[in-house]
Simulated scan of single mutants.
Amino acid sequence: MIDNGRAARNILNLRKELSLTQTELASLLGVSHQAVSKWEQGDCLPDIAVLLKLGQVSGKSVEELLLGESISGGSASERTSPSSELPDKVWTEALERIQGRISPPSFNTWFKGTKGRLVEESYCIYSPSRFAAEWLYQRYSDLIVPILEDVTGTSGLKVEFCSTGAWDQ
């Protein structure tokens, strides 16, 4: 049985890790800020569709969101993260420039945990989840691509947005 108090603490801690307000998280998930407040107080739990979306946004499994632990032996991001790789200097510089141009909550939500590297003739940006990769592409590619072109000195740079699972391919 799921302990609402434990799930509430997990959701609250996750929101704080992402540096989001209840209103910002609600907007990302398509719910009201009152719903987020009720979850964090343990009054109720998010429905499964919202839990799945929250998992996509955070790179955590439903088990991690509700129980605070992974039943399957580690989150998807822990299993596939390229964290053992040295930081890519191009992406590090691009992130510094991006950080100065968007709000801290947006940066923390969408850009923290991303990696970048040149793969053949494309520059690949890896996000913790497919949802996050698609969000970066849809919302931020007009910002990211010119910055990467400036950092690399390459015009017409091909940029791809992938989830970290593609890192091993």
Results as ranks from 00 to 15, higher is better:
Ala26Trp: 07
Tyr123Thr: 08
Gly113Pro: 02
Ser155Tyr: 02
Leu65Val: 07
Gln99Met: 08
Val36His: 05
Glu160Met: 10
Glu69Ile: 12
Leu12Lys: 15
Gly59Glu: 05
Ser58Gly: 11
Asn10Tyr: 03
Leu28Ser: 09
Cys124Thr: 13
Gln34Thr: 15
Ile71Met: 11
Gly153Thr: 05
Arg139Met: 06
Gln41Pro: 00
Gly153Lys: 02
Ile147Gln: 02
Arg101Glu: 14
Pro128Ser: 07
Ser32Lys: 08
Asp43Leu: 12
Gln22Met: 15
Ser81Met: 06
Ile11Phe: 07
Ser61Trp: 02
Ser75Glu: 11
Ala7Gln: 05
Glu24Cys: 08
Leu51Ile: 10
Gly55Lys: 05
Leu51Cys: 08
Ile125Glu: 04
Arg117Ala: 13
Thr164Val: 15
Phe131Pro: 01
Glu134Met: 13
Asn108Tyr: 09
Arg101Asp: 02
Ile71Glu: 11
Leu52Pro: 00
Leu51Gln: 12
Gly100Glu: 12
Gly113Trp: 09
Lys60Gln: 14
Arg6Val: 13
Glu64Met: 07
Cys124Ser: 14
Gly42His: 03
Tyr123Met: 09
Phe161His: 10
Thr23Met: 12
Glu17Thr: 13
Ser122Gly: 01
Ala94Val: 09
Pro46Thr: 10
Arg97Gly: 00
Leu157Gln: 06
Ser19Trp: 04
Ala49Met: 06
Leu65Cys: 03
Val57Thr: 14
Gly55His: 03
Met1Thr: 10
Gly153Met: 03
Leu86Asn: 09
Glu121Gln: 08
Cys162Asn: 14
Gly74Thr: 06
Lys16Leu: 15
Ala76His: 08
Trp167Ser: 12
Arg79Glu: 02
Ile147Met: 01
Lys158Val: 14
Glu96Leu: 07
Arg117His: 01
Gly59Ser: 09
Ala132Arg: 14
Leu25Asn: 05
Asn108Ile: 05
Ser27Arg: 15
Trp91Gln: 04
Leu51Ala: 06
Glu121Trp: 01
Gly55Trp: 04
Ile147Cys: 03
Lys158Tyr: 01
Ser106His: 12
Gln41Asp: 03
Pro105Gly: 09
Val62Gln: 02
Leu29Tyr: 02
Ala49Phe: 06
Ser163Asp: 15
Pro105Phe: 07
Gln22Val: 09
Ser129Lys: 10
Ser72Thr: 07
Gln34Arg: 09
Lys89Glu: 11
Val50Pro: 00
Ile11His: 04
Gly5Pro: 00
Ala133Trp: 05
Glu134Ile: 12
Ala133Asp: 05
Glu93Met: 07
Ile11Glu: 01
Trp39Asp: 04
Pro146Ser: 06
Asn10Pro: 00
Ala35Gly: 01
Val145Ala: 04
Ile11Trp: 03
Pro104Ala: 10
Glu93Thr: 13
Gln56His: 13
Leu86Arg: 12
Gly30Cys: 10
Tyr137Gln: 15
Arg9Lys: 14
Ser155Phe: 04
Leu67Ile: 07
Gly165Cys: 04
Cys124Asn: 11
Ser129Tyr: 08
Tyr137Trp: 14
Thr92Phe: 04
Leu65Ala: 05
Trp135Ile: 15
Phe107Ile: 07
Glu134Gly: 11
Ser19Cys: 10
Tyr137Phe: 13
Ile98Asp: 00
Gly68Glu: 05
Gly68Cys: 03
Leu148Gly: 01
Val36Gln: 06
Ser27Thr: 15
Leu45Ile: 11
Trp39Tyr: 15
